[in-house]
Simulated scan of single mutants.
Amino acid sequence: MNDIGAELAEICDAAAALILPLWRTGLAVAQKADESPVTEADRQGEALILKALAERFPDIPVVSEEDASEFGAPEAIGPRFFLVDPLDGTKAFVRGDPHFTVNIGLIQDGRPVAGAVASPPSGEVWYTQGGQAMKRLQGVPARPVRARPWPDGAALALLSHTMKPETADKLAQEYGFHLREPMDSSIKLCRIAEGMADIYPRHGPTMEWDTAAGHAVLAAAGGRLTTPEGQPFLYGKAHEGFRNGWFVARGA
């Protein structure tokens, strides 16, 4: 029942096809209560995903970003539920940058057990299937991907686009990486999952729907996402409004 990553990938694909024509079209940008941006692409993508999940998995509840922003996150959630971010990286989307993604993750007992992430600009889709992580491009058959071992002297960190240089320097000393590249959205987790980068330390706020799908893909690829102390990174924190604490994502 947890091996539904390919189905989630199909839904992410459909949402990506809806969102992509709206990119770089000058969509109006509104501000949510937390002052983060939202566009019609976010709303249309979420509506498509929620409809598809309700049709395919009617018994599994969904916690989604825009619905939670407008109506409030649920105050309690069961052990099995979906986390949806229809457009992670809205700021990048608004700037015209290509690093934004569509995300659906399935949580079971606090852990991500299936997920899919789509990158509308590149046509890439990563998803879980059969205990491994898969990647496909439009028109190209899917293939397994794996996180790579830590490359001594050449470890690449993916860092938030807005991170200050002094903060990045401090993280480099703390975690021992040598190279760095700015990047938005959950695509950072997928790049680590496919062995293109090595670490993503996040010492700042995120929400559970930002990370669940990418976390599932990374774990299936042999990587890990933990607290900075190395403890399991859990989901379903309804009492905290589904807010994440700090985390570190690493390759193999």
Results as ranks from 00 to 15, higher is better:
M1S: 15
I4T: 03
A6W: 03
A9V: 10
C12Q: 05
L18Y: 01
I19N: 00
W23S: 11
R24K: 14
T25Y: 03
G26Q: 02
V29H: 02
A30Q: 12
A30H: 13
D34H: 09
D34Q: 10
A41R: 05
A41W: 09
A41D: 07
R43E: 14
G45W: 01
L48F: 07
L48G: 05
I49N: 05
K51S: 14
K51T: 15
K51R: 15
A52N: 00
A52V: 01
E55R: 13
F57Q: 08
F57D: 06
V63S: 06
D67V: 15
F71P: 00
A73G: 04
P79N: 11
R80Y: 09
R80I: 14
D85E: 08
D85G: 09
D85M: 04
A92P: 01
R95G: 05
P98N: 10
F100N: 05
V102E: 04
I107V: 15
A114I: 03
G115W: 01
G115Y: 04
A116Y: 01
A118F: 13
A118R: 05
S119C: 15
S122M: 07
T128A: 13
T128S: 12
Q129V: 01
G131N: 02
Q132G: 15
Q132L: 15
M134E: 10
K135D: 00
R136G: 04
R136A: 12
G139R: 12
G139Q: 10
R146K: 14
A147P: 09
P149N: 11
A155I: 04
A168H: 04
A168R: 13
A168V: 10
D169E: 13
D169F: 14
K170S: 13
K170F: 12
L171Q: 12
H178K: 12
S185M: 08
S185E: 02
C190E: 08
R191C: 10
I192C: 12
E194P: 14
A197V: 11
Y200L: 11
T206Q: 05
W209F: 15
A212G: 03
A213Q: 06
L218P: 04
A219H: 10
T226D: 14
T227H: 12
P228S: 03
G230Q: 08
P232I: 08
F233I: 03
L234C: 11
Y235V: 06
E240L: 14
G241N: 00
F242E: 01
R243W: 02
W246P: 10
V248L: 02
V248D: 02
A249V: 11
R250A: 10
G251Q: 04
